[in-house]
Amino acid sequence: MNIALSAVLLFILLIPGFALYNGLFVGSFSKPGPKLSLVEALLGTGIFSLTIHAIALLVLHQPVRFDILTRLLGGDLKDFDKLVGNNEFKIYILHFTAYNLTINVVCFLLGRFCRLLIQANLWDVRFSLLRLHNKWWYLFNGYYLDELGRPGDRGNYDLIIVDALVKSGSEFIIYSGYLIDFVCEGELLERIYLQSPERRFLQHPDQEQPADQVFQEDIYSLKADIFCLNYSEILNFTIRFITSPETIEEVEDVSKAEDSLDN
């Protein structure tokens, strides 16, 4: 009895479930998968894969040599050469490979199609079960504004500004800048990238300064293009989603005007 052979064959037959899961949930900033034991994962994908194979059998209308399949699944290779000839077995192997390849590709594409459907209808925002990305992705792309019923289209703002509070020794520092990227590990935010970073010290409560008043001399430009800030160092941060009613042409004119000022 060849256990390794039957295990490999079983795994091949279970791939459609994994293919669909990958097509549906694997992508940028995808949410971590459910924490399942090996048995639970195999059972889960097994039920789905069995359904897919059953549908395929109904559609194909081709005779299937279950006698060969069960012998291989059982790992019983005794007198196997008497059951099927060498050339015949070659044909069966090619058919089996083509069948599995087709099924797996179809399942992956089906997963991708479902993913697009979910995103197009915002079901990933509405139903937690269908959430495709981790929560930071939805936050930084402004989806929570839509959830709160505020104006704005999903994830397409002109500027995103972050003010992050960081403690350095006994001082509290606020780093401000345009959010241009972020890195996550599963559901955990690792770091954010800010463009045009600026730094200012948070005033001590004893020093009277209105909360909305910021003195220009307090602000210090970090003179860097991009500032990387580790999330572990951030105490808290605010995000502002900025929009501009001007057209692209008008914004370009403003940019050119700024360039001409410098010249």
């Binding site: 940028s28 900033f29 992705w137 930084f140 792309n141 402004g142 994830g155 397409n156 703002y157 002109d158 500027l159 995103i160 345009y178 959010l179 241009i180 990227d181 972020f182 463009q195 045009s196 900025i242 501009s244 001007e246 057209t247 692209i248 914004v251 370009e252 940019s255």
Partner: peptide, 13 residues
């Protein structure tokens, strides 16, 4: 970038 910024925003940045 993994942050969706409009073309207007990209011009500003």
């Amino acid at each position: 970038t993994n942050v969706r910024i409009s073309n207007k925003g990209k011009i500003l940045l």
